[in-house]
Design a protein around this nucleic acid. Structure first.
Lengths: 366, 366
DNA sequence: ATTCAGCATGTAAAGGGTTTCATAAAATCC
DNA sequence: GGATTTTATGAAACCCTTTACATGCTGAAT
């Protein structure tokens, strides 16, 4: 592969001049620039990025560490991250599917020197300690950490409030026997959502210990299987809150298979508002989590931090999780003459429409 | 940040010795190794990856260029890529959301020197030329290219055969007035699927020009909107083939909103077999495309190529697209006593279950 | 004519590692 | 006990760039 030296030799100039053509053309005379560009093209010369990274100490790359990639949540998260990063000329160095804290440490070490910052979402609280190690080297933005980590920015989703609102909605609709399909037991989001559920029950004067909580793993099938447990109850719950939409949809499928009419025989509420949630029948009432926004916001905070040379105070952004009422919870009074899918907008999530500009209603906590 | 020099100085050894501790411990005496490790730990020294990349000419990183990240297909594709890459200690340098061929060239240039190879999926045929430029520098694996490119490996999904089989299935069920919701008109997969649809009609002695083809963009909403066009036809089609599951589900939602009973009033078939396809009601008949496998296989071919120093002959792997019959096409005779979701397996797509070992039925073309 | 600013370019020193080759000390051999 | 091999370490070259500084040159100002 041609190097800057080959080009310099062929053009009869020094490597410094070639370098200047690629970095600051105004420093080189037009004729020389043209000549070098022509020769570089013939030689198919492309500056070696690793070498530039090394000397410039700027990589235009963000490290992204995620616990998993399964499901639309992560899909949208990465999409949001990539979209904003791409817009600023940044690339993404991705690592995922960790088996433990050591694994995640290894991955982050392998990134050092090749990234300008790290955006990480921890699978569990234990692994969160990794962030402390990295934060001494490069800026870190944490996604939904259980608790804040010294020196790291945080962007979080208000899982607790969202779950509480969703549960309250069911209670307001008159339901008294509620069940929940929970997420993975070591997952921070899942835990927060479960807490929100319990809190809403307490708020309503019910005993959260009496509510049926079925373990799940965020996957559709675990929701599907949960139906059997629910159907076996006597008295049977009248409403179910699933910790994410995937499980909610799995649950709905199973309930419908067993002959239940939704939402009349059973109200179901999910969490995340994946795209498909609006397209199942009945449309799923859920809590909207803008995963793309979560990622996009994290990148913006990272880029801000990178722009300032002095270390800035750590930011903490909490994105709201809004209840999105559709039909699966039982159509609220006064809504039944609307189209079944009135929330439909012209072009949701369209690539042209920047995720990053939709943060109007976020709440910033100092 | 501590460098190898700092560690060497603190330990009273040369940088060569420190380097050897991290690369080939057997070259250094146990005592010295312990000392250096201890000091490195105190100094929080981590070898700079950019510097290693530069001199070793090995980055343990794969560049991934994708047209978009929207939807479960890309989600699973990346997941498959990452899973196999991770297992071999590789990281992923991701770039996506391109606005044109120049954009994609820029991105790939920014990767050079930081990657060992490129896995790329082109948004359109035009951009495919980019692959030629890169292939001179690093190995390239193309995902679903329109036509093969000199010097590049190819992993493709048999979109044509899949679409043909899906359409044939509808025809075999007795349907004669078919409609299709097509994908983006410059998208290679979408085009192949449309061709498969046409071919099946021709096979059945029908005129493909008479079949209604509604434009779509692979998103749920475009399927939802297509329902209006379909309902406006007279005589109305009795079956619809959607170019992907997202649009199929959107379509089903709209048809059900309009009061149609599925599959009796209208048969619907999708493409991709996203996880949710099995959980909508009625369960969606579709063509299974294992996106994770597609990505995983691409990584494996890449790693094989990287292992061999001489240039190996380019491989071409075509992954089959199997028809997956569920209920949305009208339950075939003899199936109606089965559970509505008989295909449910214990733990589909579980992370522990390696995507890479499921290639039993792929077809390799020399 | 001299001085000086400004421009185009070259020289050489980083940047942080790996690795070849050389060297000295220790272990092995006869 | 001297020759030879093995082992542990160091010196320096190298990977490919960027950039501070030096140089020579042109043209304007004095």
């Amino acid at each position: 592969m041609a190097t800057i030296r080959d080009v310099a030799k062929a053009a009869g100039v020094s490597i410094a001049t070639v370098s200047r053509v690629y970095n600051n053309q105004s420093l080189v005379s037009p004729q020389t620039t043209q000549l070098i560009l022509k020769i570089a093209d013939e030689l198919e010369y492309v500056p070696n990025s690793a070498a530039r990274n090394l000397i410039m100490r700027r990589t235009h790359t963000l490290g992204v560490l995620l616990p998993d990639l399964y499901g639309e949540f992560y899909s949208e998260l990465i999409r949001g991250i990539e979209l904003v990063a791409h817009r600023h000329g940044f690339q993404i160095l991705l690592s995922s599917s960790f088996h433990g804290p050591e694994d995640i440490v290894m991955a982050s070490k392998a990134m050092l020197g090749r990234i300008d910052g790290v955006i990480m979402m921890s699978p569990d609280k234990r692994s969160m300690r990794t962030a402390e190690k990295i934060s001494g080297k490069v800026p870190v933005v944490l996604l939904n950490p259980g608790e804040p980590i010294e020196g790291c920015h945080v962007v979080a989703v208000d899982n607790f409030a969202g779950a509480r609102a969703a549960t309250k909605h069911l209670l307001d609709l008159g339901h008294r026997r509620l069940a929940m399909v929970a997420g993975p037991e070591d997952n921070i989001d899942a835990l927060d959502r479960q807490e929100g559920f319990r809190r809403a029950l307490i708020d309503a004067g019910l005993d959260p210990e009496e509510a049926l909580v079925i373990p799940g793993d965020f996957r559709e099938l675990s929701g599907f299987k949960a139906a059997r447990v629910i159907m076996g109850q006597d008295p049977r719950p009248t409403a179910v809150f699933a910790a994410n939409d995937g499980m909610a949809i799995g649950l709905m499928a199973a309930l419908q298979d067993k002959g239940l009419a939704l939402p009349d025989d059973m109200a179901v509420v999910g969490f995340d508002d994946i795209t498909l949630a609006g397209f199942v029948t009945p449309p799923l009432t859920t809590v909207k989590v803008d995963a793309g926004c979560l990622g996009g916001r994290a990148v913006e905070i990272m880029l801000e931090t990178l722009d300032m040379e002095e270390t800035a105070p750590t930011q903490r952004v909490v994105l709201p999780a809004h209840l999105k009422v559709r039909s699966s919870c039982g159509i609220p009074a006064g809504r039944d003459h609307f189209s079944r899918r009135p929330w439909m907008e012209p072009e949701p999530h369209h690539p042209e429409k920047p995720v990053a500009t939709e943060y109007g209603d976020e709440e910033v906590q100092p």
